[in-house]
Every structure is written in C-alpha cells, then in structure tokens.
Design a protein around this nucleic acid. Structure first.
Length: 748
DNA sequence: GGCCGGGGCATTTTT
DNA sequence: TGCCCCGGCC
C-alpha cells in the first residue's frame, strides 16, 4: 500500500488521499491528472469500497477504457469490471434504460446522432414551409442543443424573454415552435438525442425522489474528469447525485477549456468552490511532459487571459530548445517548410515519424500538408472527417437494426423505407409523415394501420408499404431467435443490400462492401466476446446501445504505425507528441475570424493555442503564411496576435530558411493514405482448439484468437462454467469462459 | 429514381 | 477552390 503511494508526488498523493468531502483538482497540462484519478479509485477499492459504489465520469469512451484498464492492472479485472465508469452519455443511458417507463419511454429507445437530429430539424423546417436560409438547420440545431444543455424545455423556452428576444432580433422567432415540434417528434419516435440522455436523467432525478435516493446511496463516490468541459446539465446531475454526501471529486484544467461553443461552461470549474463551500482545492503544478521552455512559454501565453484559477505550472525537465517560428509567403510554402523540417529533424536527430504532429485550427488546412508530405514520401495519418459509423452504407445497415429494436424510430425509417429502392418515393413518404403528424403517431404506426388513419395511397403503393412492413416484421421476429450477428447477416441479405453493393464494381463500391463487411465483423466480435464472458443472449439492441455512443476514435487500432499525425487542435486535446507543429498562426485564422470583437471567445482561442503548445514534449514549431488561398481567392494575412503573447525569450525566429528541392529524392507518390490506414495487421492463423480445464494449469502461456498472447493466472469453476483468468500482453486481464474461448496453448 | 449541374457556402465537434 | 444540397431532367 505504501509503495503504491510512493509512485505519486506530494500534491498528487494529497489529492488521492482526500475522500471525505468535495474536492477540486486543478491539473495543469501534463501533470498526471489521469494518474490521480486512477490511483484515487484504486485506493478506494483497496480500502474496501465496493466497485459499484464508485461513479467515474469521463468525456470519451477511450478515456474511460484506458482508466479502467489501468485500474484493473492495480486491483484486478474482477473488481474493476464492476466500477461505474464511462462517459456521461453511456452511464446515463444505462440508467435511463433501467428507469425508462418512469418518463414514458421504452427501455429499448434508440439514439439519434447529430446527423439524425439535424435531418429531423431540417424536415420540420420544411414541413412548416419556413425559409431554410433564415432557419438554417445547423443554427436551429445548435440553439435547441444549447437550450437542452441549459435545462430549458420547449415550454420554458417559450417563456424565456431573453431567448425569444434574441430569436426575434435574428428574425427567427419560430425556433421555439420548431424546438417544440422536434421534442414531440422524438418522443413519438421513442428516440433520444445526445442531449436528451443528459436532460432526461436530470428530470428523472428531479421528479423521482425514490430513484435519485437509490442512486445517491449506491454512488458513494462521484468522480468527474475534464470538469472544465461540462455543461450546465452535467453539472446539475453531479450535484443531484452528490447532494447528500458531497463526496465528489472533479478534475480538470480551466486553462484547457475549449468547448464552450458546444455549451460547456467554464464557470462550472471556476465556481466549483462556491457550489461546495467546504471543498478542498488541490493543484497539480508539476508538468512531467514538456521541457522547461515549453512550459514557461505556455505559461507566458495563458497569463494573458483574465478568467482563470491561479496556478504555476513548472517543469523539472531540461530547458530544451526554444520554440521555432517559421514564416512563409504562401500556404503552399508553409506546407513545404513543415514537410522539409520534419524530414530534417528525423534524419539529424533520430526521430520517428510518429514523433511528429501537425496541428491546425481548421480541417480545411490539412490538404496542403497532405500534398507536401506526400511529395517527399512522408507517411501520415489524418484524424477527422467521416467516421466509420457515419458512412452511408454503415448507417443504412444500422438503420435497419434500429428499426428492429424500435420500429417507431422516424429517422431510421425514413432512411431505409426506400433503400434498397422499393418504389416508396417522396410523395408517399410525405403522406405518411402528414398522417402521422396529425394523429401524433409514429411513421411506423401509420404504415402499420393505414386504414385506421386514412392513409390515402393507391393500391400499388399500399402493397409496397405492406411488403416493407412485412420485411421489418420478419426481422423483428428473427430478432427473438437470432443473435445480433446472425440478424445483421439476415438484414443485408434479405433486404437485397448485399447484392446491390456487390454489383457495384467501382472503387467506391468496393470500399462500401468492405465497410459493411467490417460492420458485420464487428457484430461477430461483439457477440462472441460477450458469449465468452458467459452472456447468453446478445441482441441487436445490445450492440446498438453500445455503438450509438461510440466514435471512430474508439475504433482505431494501429497506434504503433510510424506516421506523422495531422489533426485539429481540438482533437489533439489529451494527446502528446515529441514534436508539435502549430500551423496557420495568422490573424483571422487563429484566432478565428468568427471571434473578432468577442473577448471571451478570444480567450477561448488562446486556451486552444495553450492546448496546442502543451501537447509537445520536446519541440514546438509555429508557422504562418503571409498569404493563402482561401474560399476561392488569395488573401493576405498578418501574423497571429498570439505570437506576441508568448514571451520572446522562448522563441527563436528562423526567418525564411530555404530548403533546396534537390536535397530530396524525386517525388515518388505514396499510396493513398486511406489505403495505408486500411492495411490490416497480418493475420496469422492459429488452429483453434477448445480447451477444458484438464489441459490447462496456472502459469501457462496461451494465444487467444483475438487477444493474442497471455498467461493464465487463475482457473475456476467446472465443466460448463470453467473459467480462466488470463493476463494478456496487450489487452490486460480478461476472464474467459472455456466453453467458448478460442485459444491455443503456446507453452505448457 | 438516378444523374447532372448550378448556386451557395465556407470554425472548432469528446457524445 | 471544392463540397454539398437541391432541383430539374431523362
């Protein structure tokens, strides 16, 4: 136990050990924030606190998973698995499913992603014959989302003077009406959008004393990561849960709050001590990531912000090199400079490609760097863009699965009612929507009983609708006998999607086939993992509730591949690289033009710059161009005001260093990076032998079909229930049900 | 129902 | 400039 605490510095240890009341842990960049959280949880567990009485909330699945894995290593998988650890959205959707009937939902409600929400909003705007230029779906969506995050229901919106006045000022005074219709439609469809998952949780707790009491009693400790990014609902829910015992620990860094545009309120962390007057404040100020120069430069920058919790981040690492500033005449040249610099640093100082990241303010900037890197054969990887689950063909299959789980799901139904084409066009769909709207029923109900609701279509169309209905019903029936993987296969075959996709021989068509195959594979993996863990029925609904809250970032595997990383600064938060290039350091680009004249937003941009710099361990290179081609025309730019915010002592300006083109070999075009990404690990085939407990003993090495090499730590149970606890080299500790587990013995 | 072309437009996006 | 969305046409 003592040794365990030795691994922490004094302030980390104090933060870990204080658990009697509310605490605020202000964790400077690179100061071991996650470490404090994991050790705190491990400490509680080692002191006999039951895992299910600890609630730990994060913002990404990845963060939750990584933390859980680390805790599992410290206290064992069997304990860690019962922790309530996950994203706000996944934890609360779990609670909402349990309590669904309390607020008029079914426990198998489906979830709209942002695109679904936007589509529905767009549809409502159209149905109301509003001009979609004044009522831009994205703006309306943002406004509704903002309202939900601020606990404002439609009827409250209508009474809110400020909101109404603001909408009127922008000539959008019917937003409130759209909001109300959107709310109603989601309810009729039995779906929730991301914001609903939080809002309904809040209402559930507010309106049902017995329920909130139950969870308050269960969650004796509440921990929240990245508190600077919470919005008002999240803040309120945490308050509801910690109401009685006040054992709440929030961790974050106000200097890294960069999501206010999505409704995050930095005030939550700034005012935490007012919310909980008896709270203790812990500051983690030692940065273990970066050189002194980088930390000092970042400090000198963030000093320029007014609103912040005072702290002095310091580094005990070497001084390191100054930050480099490179200018260029054009964006094209900027790209060239960066590529050349990377090549040079790699050659001269033995860096690998994966030690570099290029960070930019907007995704549009990536192209020029892609080209530049490609020309001199530097492998790269771009984050951002369309995620796997957002691809059309993947969403189509998932839409069927959603409809099976919840036939009332409007957006899922609209998506596939005529895909693959079955002669149900927009006219028919329009009629269905209008009938459904007048009777306040779902589209599915309108289709199911066309006569009851006077759905006025000709007999041919009626037949087609019946056929569609029959198809979905057959899937629903199959869902009770088939697992998620089997049903997935049924869906792509029975609908004709399989054939349709395979007939398309174009490269795009092939990639669509691949994507659908990947989805089916992941279904297979999902099902078999759970069966191995001893679960019996693994249904489509289980799969959906997991993946609807997942993003691409959770899927990617090949983190070892040595490539230069390119991404927006926003998506770089939480990551670290040896060398960071922050590019496009120009006024109107960074800080963004949109922030002009708004000091609060400029401060947020400055925090964004702070995040960018503090990603670096060893070197920071800042670049800017005097002109760039943007929005179809050449524009002149001046250097960003943020460059002057860094104390000049920490910057070395290397004006216009010219790299001779001849010093690099002739451009050989690299394969398309998308392809590079797709190259899968070479799969070696291992004969799969079903094992019984008799063949195994503690200590032997096995190779599992998916988890790879691992050592058996424990064997329990007999026959049908025989289980092995295995410590895998790259997947950590797992429990396998021998009846299903696929592995071979490597070393007896 | 699918394809083509014109017009409008153009931050950031953990779920 | 390039992408996306919509509407018109076959």
């Amino acid at each position: 136990m003592e040794q365990f605490l030795q691994q922490l510095n004094i302030s980390q240890r104090e933060a870990v050990l204080y658990n009697d009341g509310p605490s605020l842990v202000i964790a400077g960049a690179g100061s071991g924030k996650t470490r404090v959280l994991t050790y705190k949880i491990a400490w509680l567990l080692k002191n006999g606190i039951a895992p299910y009485s600890i609630l730990a909330l994060t913002f990404t699945n990845k963060a939750a998973r990584e933390m859980k894995d680390r805790i599992a290593q410290m206290v064992g998988e069997t304990t860690a698995r019962y922790l309530w650890m996950g994203t706000f959205h996944s934890i609360f959707s779990r609670i909402l499913r349990r309590e669904a009937e309390k607020f008029g939902y079914r426990s198998d409600f489906t979830i709209y992603d942002s695109q679904d929400s936007k589509n529905l909003i767009k549809a409502i705007i159209k149905e109301k014959s509003l001009d979609d230029n004044t009522y831009k779906p994205s703006i309306v969506q943002a406004r509704i989302s903002r309202a939900k995050n601020a606990l404002i229901m439609p009827e409250m919106y209508a009474r809110d003077r400020e909101l109404i006045a603001d909408d009127r000022y922008h000539k959008r005074d019917r937003i409130c009406e759209i909001y109300s219709a959107y709310w109603q439609r989601c309810r009729t469809s039995g779906v929730m959008d991301f914001d609903d998952l939080l809002l309904y949780t809040y209402m559930l707790f507010k309106d049902n004393t017995d329920i909130v009491e139950r969870y308050r009693n269960q969650f004796r400790f509440v921990l929240v990561d990245e508190y600077q990014d919470t919005n008002p609902v999240q803040h309120e829910i945490v308050k509801q849960l910690a109401e009685e015992h006040h054992r709440v620990c929030v961790v974050g860094d106000d200097a890294q709050s960069i999501y206010s545009f999505r409704g995050a309120t930095i005030g939550n962390i700034l005012n935490f001590q007012k919310t909980y007057p008896e709270s203790k404040l812990f500051k983690l100020e030692q940065n273990y990531r970066s050189t002194k120069t980088i930390v000092n430069a970042a400090n000198s920058l963030i000093e320029k912000n007014k609103e912040q919790i005072p702290k002095v981040v310091f580094s005990e690492k070497e001084t390191g090199e100054k930050i480099k500033l490179i200018n260029a005449y054009s964006d094209y040249e900027e790209g060239y400079n960066v590529a050349a610099r990377i090549a040079e640093m790699r050659m001269l100082r033995q860096y690998e490609y994966k030690d570099f990241a290029i960070l930019y303010r907007t995704n549009a900037q990536s192209r020029i760097f892609e080209e530049a890197l490609r020309k001199i054969n530097i492998p790269y990887r771009i984050y951002g863009g369309l995620s796997f689950y957002q691809r059309k063909e993947v969403k189509d299959v998932i839409a069927y699965m959603r409809l099976v789980t919840n036939p009332n799901d409007e957006e899922a139904l609209k998506r596939i009612i005529n895909y693959p084409a079955r002669g149900i066009g927009n006219t028919t769909l329009g009629k269905i929507i209008s009938v459904a709207d007048t009777h306040r029923i779902s589209l599915w109900e309108a289709i199911s009983s066309p006569l009851d609701y006077n759905l006025n279509v000709n007999s041919g169309t009626a037949k087609k609708l019946e056929g569609f209905k029959g198809l979905i019903e057959s899937f629903i029936a199959a869902n009770s006998t088939h697992n998620a993987y089997e049903l997935g296969g049924e869906i792509i075959r029975q609908t004709g999607m399989f054939n349709e996709l395979h007939n398309d021989r174009t490269p795009e068509g092939l990639s669509r086939v691949q994507n659908v195959e990947e989805l089916i594979n992941s279904l297979n993996e999902f099902v078999s993992t759970r069966i191995e863990e001893g679960r019996e029925d693994v249904k489509t609904g289980d799969f959906l509730s997991e993946i609807s809250l997942m993003t691409d970032r959770d899927t990617d595997k090949d983190e070892n591949a040595s490539m230069v990383t390119m991404m927006t600064i926003h998506s770089a938060k939480g990551l670290e690289f040896k060398n960071i290039f922050v590019v496009g350091m120009e006024e109107d680009l960074f800080p963004s033009e949109m922030c002009k004249g708004n000091p609060k937003e400029i401060e947020e941009e400055r925090r964004l710059f702070y995040v960018a710099i503090t990603r670096a361990e060893e070197n920071v290179v800042l670049t800017y161009a005097k002109s760039r081609f943007r929005n179809g025309q050449w524009q002149m730019f001046t250097p960003s005001r943020f460059l002057k915010d860094i104390h000049p002592d920490y910057i070395h300006t290397s004006w216009k260093k010219t790299y001779k083109k001849t010093s690099y070999s002739e451009p050989e075009i690299l394969p398309n990076p998308q392809k590079l990404l797709r190259i899968e690990e070479e799969k070696t085939y291992h004969p799969v032998v079903r094992q019984t407990i008799g063949n195994l003993s503690v200590g032997i090495i096995i190779r599992h079909e998916r988890f790879g090499r691992g050592r058996i730590l424990e064997l329990t149970g007999e026959n049908e229930n025989a289980k092995a606890t295995v410590e895998f080299e790259s997947f950590g500790r797992k429990q396998l049900l021998l009846k299903f587990a696929k592995f071979e013995v490597v070393d007896g």
